[in-house]
């Protein structure tokens, strides 16, 4: 390379004097403001790095003079939303759900907010679509173990079922008949239960099971097997089975009983959240 400037004969433009393999670099000067813009961005960058979190350190990053953080921004946004919703939220917390009209803003707020509460707290057991699973009730259908009115649902959410945290939790315990009855007897009861719900069954055994049912089961499940919500005893005549309605599953239930637990949400959720999730669950298609 040689530093002497030469003029390019074709364009009449000076070259920078740089040449690589016969290719010369022309010098069409950039405007000076361009350079100043570059310096400006550098100055800006320095200022930015001072004002905002920038330099990575071992335990995080420098915090910047403005004390800004994305976490803080999210927190501020959440606080702003909470503040905006404070009024409707208070209305909801104080509302009597049973008389709250559907077009009340608090109702709308409750359903949407309840959906969020549900996704965060309930979907682990009941599923994101609230369809439940084996042992976890489906909240979409029209069958309720402990009742499907708004008040019933709210009570269940607040106190839970068979938990040890809340003294007011809904409670009942089915005996494990495997300790009291013989295997053939249990099989006969199972056939009777299948018959009750109109499934394919052994008529002779079911006949025999009817007496055993009346003696052992009817006190909770009712003479006709239609259940008792006071005790959370399921209706055995319908098409809905919490632990599946097959012969094997029914036999297992009679032999060893079931003990489904739901936590009490009273200590964990606010009043407004409990009412919101109650409204949400109630309008999923099965509410009474």
């Amino acid at each position: 390379m040689d530093d002497k400037e030469t003029r390019d004969p074709v364009t009449g433009v000076d070259t920078t004097g740089h040449e690589w393999d016969g290719i010369k670099e022309l010098n069409n000067p950039m405007p000076r403001w361009w350079l100043w813009t570059l310096y400006g961005t550098i100055v800006w960058g320095i200022g930015y790095a001072i004002a905002y979190p920038a330099w990575p350190l071992v335990q995080g990053a420098t915090s910047g003079l403005l004390g800004y953080s994305t976490r803080g921004e999210v927190a501020a946004e959440i606080a702003a939303v909470d503040a905006r919703n404070a009024e409707v939220s208070a209305t909801l917390a104080a509302a009597d759900l049973a008389t709250l009209p559907v077009d009340d803003p608090a109702y709308q707020f409750g359903v949407s907010g309840g959906a969020a509460v549900f996704r965060a707290n309930c979907s682990q057991c009941h599923g994101a679509g609230a369809a439940g699973g084996v042992g976890y009730p489906n909240l979409l259908d029209d069958s309720w173990l402990w009742g499907g009115t708004l008040d019933d649902i709210e009570y269940t959410v607040r106190h839970g079922i068979r938990n040890e945290i809340d003294a007011d939790a809904r409670f009942s315990q089915m005996p494990a008949f495997g300790e009291m009855l013989s295997k053939p007897e249990i099989a006969e009861i199972a056939e009777h239960v299948l018959a009750l719900s109109g499934q394919e069954h052994d008529a002779a055994k079911a006949e025999a099971g009817a007496t055993l049912f009346a003696d052992n089961c009817a006190s909770c499940h009712g003479e006709a097997g239609t259940g008792d919500r006071e005790q959370g005893a399921p209706d055995l005549t319908d098409a809905i089975w919490l632990y599946s309605g097959t012969r094997e599953a029914v036999t297992e239930t009679i032999t060893n009983a079931r003990f489904g637990v739901m936590p009490a949400w009273g200590p964990r959720l606010s009043d407004a959240e409990i009412k919101a999730v109650t409204l949400y669950v109630h309008q999923l298609g099965g509410g009474e």
Binding site: G127, A128, G129, A131, N138, L140, D141, D142, S143, G198, D235, D238, A239, I240, G285
Partner: peptide, 18 residues
């Protein structure tokens, strides 16, 4: 159609879609 769940069985055995 709501796909989660695909359908719901009602107590009388009817099948409901949302």
């Amino acid at each position: 159609p709501i796909r989660n769940p695909q359908f719901v069985t009602l107590s009388d055995g009817a099948v409901r879609n949302a």
